[in-house]
């Protein structure tokens, strides 16, 4: 059985298709990433899997349970860490967890033992009796992860788990997530638009853009798609630059303000590139060379960078979700 299985999973808001016929299979215990820019359909996909949003078309199964047919059974078997905090700041860490444990029907005899256990997992046992409003952003996020794990779910959903955290806290949280994934032997599905995060954490990644899965593989394999090295060149005439034909160039992509070449060997190619460019009166302003990153894979596949978001796509989806309401039951 798969932790997650979807068949042509689709979500429409009116005439707008936020998620388009997605097919996914996530193994038990796998750390799986949904990577894409804001508005790509990551959170919408997650919301459907977590039974918070109705499915327009297609099917989704969590632990073999159909999310449309058995939402209650699904919700018992999953944990969710939302993009926005959902803790009660006026309660202590322990009280937040107790509240959760009771709502999820954890037997009274196990409750306090399990609460202590998850607090230890995220290294918050010393702060159990402190009000959550005294916690830092990273601590709140850790507490939310602990809460998501409390009722022994078999799948944990993490929606942009490190959004808004500083780089140091982010790295620490990654370590926690990795550790918990192993220790609790739980499948984790996380959405992120941070390339490094997906690269560092995930066993496999689905790259989503405009509601479609455009690639699905391990980070290593995804990067192998781009052979050799990547050179980013900025010049006074990028269009002309992109048309240069030289041996040793695999692919050329004209970006908004630069040209991306994936090449066999930059050491040999660069002098030639400069020469041909100056012959055509193209002035090269800057050059950067690097090993392919997931960012390059994304650019390679979509033709645009993950950061130059289609200005309002994310907002558009959010507004539509608000307008329609996540109708359930």
């Amino acid at each position: 059985m798969f932790a997650i299985e979807t068949q042509k999973l689709t979500k429409r808001f009116g005439s707008f298709t936020a998620v388009n016929q997605i097919d996914l299979k996530v193994q038990e215990g796998e750390l799986f990433g949904l990577l894409g820019p804001n508005g790509a359909g990551k959170t919408t996909t997650l919301s459907m899997l977590a039974t918070m949003l109705s499915v327009s078309k297609g099917k989704a199964f969590v632990n073999g349970l159909d999310v449309s047919q058995e939402p209650d059974a699904v919700r018992k078997s999953i944990g969710i860490v939302f993009q926005d905090p959902s803790l009660d700041f006026d309660l202590t860490a322990k009280e937040n967890l107790e509240f959760h444990a009771k709502l999820y029907g954890l037997p009274a005899s196990l409750r306090s033992k399990r609460i202590l256990e998850v607090l230890k997992l995220v290294e918050l046992e010393d702060r159990a009796k402190d009000l959550v409003k005294t916690f830092s952003g990273g601590m709140k996020r850790r507490l939310e992860i602990a809460r998501g794990l409390l009722h022994h779910p078999t799948v944990l959903f993490l929606d942009e788990p490190t959004l808004g955290l500083d780089p140091q806290t982010r790295r620490r949280l990654w370590k926690h997530i990795q550790k918990l994934n192993k220790k609790e032997n739980i499948a984790m599905i996380l959405t992120t638009h941070y390339m490094e995060e997906a690269d560092f954490l995930c066993d496999r990644i689905a790259i989503i853009d405009g509601g479609n899965i455009i690639a699905l593989d391990s980070p290593t394999n995804l990067k192998k798609q781009l052979k050799g090295e990547t050179i980013l060149v900025q010049s006074n005439n990028n269009t002309q630059l992109a048309q240069l034909k030289l041996s040793g160039i695999f692919t050329v992509k004209a970006l908004k303000d630069a040209v991306q070449f994936s090449v066999k060997d930059s050491n040999h190619l660069l002098p030639q590139l400069f020469q041909s460019a100056s012959k055509q009166n193209i002035q090269i302003e800057s050059v950067s060379i690097h090993q392919p990153s997931l960012e390059d894979v994304f650019v390679h596949l979509t033709g645009h960078s993950i950061r130059e978001e289609v200005a309002s796509a994310g907002e558009q989806v959010k507004a539509k979700m608000k307008y329609q309401g996540y109708v359930r039951r």
């Binding site: 977590a50 039974t51 918070m52 209650d72 919700r75 018992k76 969710i80 939302f82 959902s86 803790l87 009660d88 509240f99 959760h100 709502l103 999820y104 029907g105």
Partner: peptide, 8 residues
């Protein structure tokens, strides 16, 4: 509120 709404 979400914590309560998604609880079983």
């Amino acid at each position: 509120l979400k914590e309560m709404l998604v609880a079983p």
